[in-house]
């Protein structure tokens, strides 16, 4: 019984993993005007998304200086912050995205602790 169940789980997992490769990513990048950290973050995110999520992502860049209400609504503390809205779980990546390894872990393209 248990073994059978285990098999099923593995199968489902593989299926899900395959599906994930095709999942659409919805990303929001919150920046603060044109500060160096903001411009770095925008450039890095765009580059990394093209490399890893080409064709299946949607990136929106928001300047919280211009839309302060969104900062409250989206619980933004740090800047820059990248929010991975979909797929779940929701993740917040803070920083100028220079640490590629952590970026990939953050948006669940790489398993943690590997």
């Amino acid at each position: 019984m248990e073994r059978k169940k285990g098999k099923t789980s593995t199968k489902e997992f593989e299926k899900a993993a395959a599906k994930r490769d095709r999942t659409k990513y919805i990303l929001q990048l919150y920046v603060t005007g044109m500060t160096p950290k903001s411009t770095q973050a925008i450039a890095n995110v765009q580059k990394l998304c093209e490399e890893h999520l080409a064709g299946r992502y949607e990136l929106k860049v928001i300047d919280i200086y211009q839309q302060p209400d969104l900062a409250k609504g989206e619980q933004i503390i740090a800047a820059p912050t990248l929010i991975k809205k979909l797929p779940l779980p929701l993740r917040r990546l803070i920083g100028n995205m220079t640490d590629i390894e952590k970026f990939l872990v953050g948006i669940d393209l790489k398993p943690r602790n590997s």
Partner: peptide, 29 residues
């Protein structure tokens, strides 16, 4: 009022950042 929620599990640090978001929220409030 402004309730600041930070969930450690959601956060990944990927480089330099500041707390400008907090300042903006406070300033707008």
């Amino acid at each position: 009022t402004d309730h600041v929620v930070i969930a450690r599990s959601e956060i990944e640090e990927t480089g330099e950042y500041d707390l400008e978001g907090l300042f903006i929220r406070l300033g707008s409030a």
